[in-house]
Amino acid sequence: MKRWTFLFVMLLVAGWPRTVPVWSHEGPPFPIIEGASVGPYVVAVWTDPDIGTGTFFVVMQPAEGQDFIEPSLVEVAVQPVSGRLPWASYPAEPKRSRSGVSYFTEVAFDQGEFWHVRIRIEGPQGGGVLESEVEATPDGTIGPIGLLVYVLPFLAVGFLWLKAFLRRREYEQQTAASGS
């Protein structure tokens, strides 16, 4: 049994998902701008900068003591920091949210590098521009070999469970037979 336990632990270690280095990002969106004042709005910008398609959420709340006024334009523009490509602009669409209004858009990040990000907001009571930078990173999808590694611990657990189940069944049948 110890042999199987050792094998199981080894498989578990091998299959444990890679932890995410802090300098690159593979998980869900995170904020790159927090609590910025733009015209009559308080704005936060969250992004999931995957290579290929990156997503941006522009969360807008009214400034203190004001009512929310629908902006006429929310736009996200990106450009590689290296300047190898021109600015590309993407209009953001409103998305239902409990906390104010959020605007959502997807942008194209053709390769992993640092990108300038510019968010333009316009509305009847004013607007403005916010700027930041973000690194486009792989989306974290695992390939077939990774998938195989992921499968191994589950196979090991399933195998051990089945083995223990059969031993238990045999034991119970023997006990029942000897008792009757």
């Binding site: 890679r18 989306d139 589950f154 657990v157």
Partner: peptide, 24 residues
């Protein structure tokens, strides 16, 4: 803020594994 978690692509195989163990 960049400390988030695993990508959905990496978590999906784990979900399949857990459900399949449950099936067994």
């Amino acid at each position: 803020w960049q400390w988030t978690g695993f990508s959905t692509g990496a978590v999906y195989p784990l979900e399949i594994g857990l459900i399949s163990l449950g099936l067994l």
